[in-house]
Computed example of a mutant assay.
Amino acid sequence: MSKSRIQPRSVARLAAVQALYQMEVSGVGVDAVVREFSEHRFDRDVDGEQMAAADETFFAELAKGVVAKQGEVDQAIVKRLASGWRLDRLDATARAVLRAGAFELMHRPDVPTEVVIDEYVEIAKSFFEGPEAGFINGALDAIARDART
């Protein structure tokens, strides 16, 4: 898919996952990370290629929303993990994908369930070659059933 055809919300979701990952591994706060993305990562020319535009407002809502509701979001994810699994056993990138997807399913009823799940499964596929995308698909589908009855 060419960069110019990627939808601004898709870019925002990917950036939100990257921001959540960055916050977890670096300990930097959400406001600083949102500001960094806005000032240094969006609408930039990288190696001669213009990066796709992001819906920066949506990006900030996702990143800040996950942080604000992290306890509730994590509880929804843990409920759908295999028995005995803890959230901290998951790869940090998978945690970021699940947190962003779960937040959107739980707190953005304006976005169709299928869109949320498809988008985050595609993001997972961009990071993982193994079974993680299928795992994320199943977990988000179950969270959607819990959150959107």
Rank of each mutant, 00 (worst) to 15 (best):
V34D: 00
K64M: 11
A16L: 06
L105M: 03
L62R: 00
A96V: 06
D31L: 10
V111Y: 04
K3E: 13
Y21Q: 08
K3H: 14
R5K: 15
L90S: 13
T93P: 03
E114P: 03
F127D: 02
F59H: 02
N137R: 10
A60H: 01
V33W: 00
G71V: 11
A139I: 13
Y21G: 00
E49W: 15
K69N: 08
P8R: 07
N137Y: 13
E72H: 09
A68T: 07
L98Q: 00
D141C: 15
A53K: 07
E104P: 04
G130T: 03
L87V: 05
V34H: 01
L140V: 10
A147Q: 02
T113G: 12
E56P: 09
A144W: 05
E36V: 08
A133D: 01
R86C: 01
V28M: 07
D146A: 13
V67N: 09
V121H: 02
S38G: 14
F37A: 10
E122G: 09
P112A: 14
G71I: 11
K125V: 14
R99A: 05
G130H: 13
P109N: 11
T113C: 05
S2H: 06
L105N: 01
E72A: 13
Y120Q: 03
Q75G: 11
D91K: 07
Q50C: 12
A147F: 04
E119H: 06
S26A: 10
E49S: 14
I136F: 03
A94P: 02
D118E: 14
S38V: 08
F59M: 08
V33H: 01
Y120E: 00
A142H: 03
D55K: 09
R99Q: 04
G65Y: 01
A133V: 06
R9T: 12
D45N: 12
G84F: 07
Q75N: 13
D110W: 09
F58C: 08
S2C: 09
D141N: 15
T149W: 10
S2R: 13
A60Y: 00
R89Y: 06
R80Y: 12
E122M: 04
D74R: 04
V111F: 00
D91A: 07
P109W: 07
Y120L: 07
H107W: 07
A102K: 00
A92L: 08
V121G: 02
T57I: 12
A100I: 00
A63S: 07
V116F: 03
V116I: 09
A100G: 12
K3R: 14
I143W: 01
R13K: 08
A94F: 04
H40F: 12
I143L: 13
Y21S: 03
A96F: 02
E122S: 05
G101L: 01
A142D: 08
A16K: 04
P131M: 10
S4Y: 11
M23G: 06
F37M: 10
F135C: 04
D74E: 12
P131N: 14
F42E: 01
L81M: 11
L81F: 02
V33C: 06
L98R: 02
T113P: 04
V97G: 00
L20I: 15
A16D: 06
E129A: 15
A32T: 10
T93I: 12
